[in-house]
């Protein structure tokens, strides 16, 4: 199963980020190619979320360059909006809009941001809901759904904007075990369809079977990047070994 990867879609050059005095990202360098599935691992507080959130400017980086889909993330609002249109994001806590129905959650951005007609947005919304296998929930409110269903709606909401890249930040961490599979299945389908994916997750099975590359973070920087198989069986770095020992002991 050797996958042909496309052109670079995310380029990070020496990315630094400080929270006040705290140096959260310390010179991250990496390139993600089109169609690539990257899983980000690392101990708690190592900066995984921080990094993934700088990629669509939910967090601002203070030094270095981030180029997403050919557009540089800087203080230009136009660039930021352009990148956010092309990059979908799924959060640990779902963050669905509780005052809107499932379908309204999904069609909001296509109508407001892409300026699609309601008909077109709803058609696309239903298509995405079918893709995540819950078209029958369209007219419910988020509060009426199970956690797994909510997270799938959140994925459909991001997909409806037809993004080129999807970011996942621990999408299954708030879910009960039997719901985790529903979400991982959807993510795997996405990967099979050729979507570029960056996912922070503790699901080692997903990392092993779906990812093209594992990025291991520690203390605000990338410590090791490797093929999943090599990373799990024969990690290059001491810290990676330590980390794997800790999680595999459980």
């Amino acid at each position: 199963m050797v996958k042909e990867l496309g052109a670079p879609v995310i380029v990070c050059e020496d990315v630094h980020k400080w929270y006040g005095d705290f140096h959260a990202l310390r010179g991250v360098n990496t390139t993600v190619r089109e169609g690539e599935v990257v899983v980000i691992l690392g101990p708690s507080g190592s900066g995984k979320s921080t990094w993934i959130r700088t990629l669509n400017r939910l967090e601002e980086h203070q030094r270095g360059r981030i180029i997403v889909h050919g557009t540089e993330l800087n203080n230009d609002v136009r660039n930021i909006q352009e990148i956010r249109r092309e990059v979908g994001m799924v959060f640990q806590q779902f963050n669905l809009f509780p005052h809107l129905t499932v379908l309204e959650n999904i069609t909001l951005a296509p109508i407001q941001v892409r300026k699609w007609s309601r008909d077109r947005a709803e058609e696309e919304g239903m298509k995405q809901l079918t893709r995540v296998k819950i078209p029958e929930q369209a007219s419910k409110y988020p509060g009426q759904l199970s956690g797994g269903q909510q997270q799938r709606v959140a994925i459909a909401r991001a997909l409806a904007m037809q993004p080129k890249i999807m970011l996942f930040d621990e999408p299954t961490s708030a879910l009960d075990p039997e719901m985790i599979k529903e979400v991982l299945d959807v993510m795997q389908d996405l990967a099979n369809d050729g979507m570029t994916i960056l996912a922070v997750t503790h699901e080692m099975g997903f990392a092993r079977n779906v990812a093209d590359r594992v990025i291991f973070f520690d203390e605000g920087n990338i410590v090791e990047e490797n093929k999943p198989n090599t990373f799990f069986s024969n990690p290059r770095e001491e810290r990676s070994k330590l980390f794997l020992q800790q999680i595999l002991h459980h």
Binding site: Q81, F97, Q112, V113
Partner: peptide, 18 residues
């Protein structure tokens, strides 16, 4: 209104007014 709501809105590309 939780911060997550604003983050989700921004991530979807809504501007500050929206």
């Amino acid at each position: 209104v939780s911060k997550g709501q604003s983050e989700a809105a921004r991530a979807l590309g809504l501007n500050e007014g929206q």
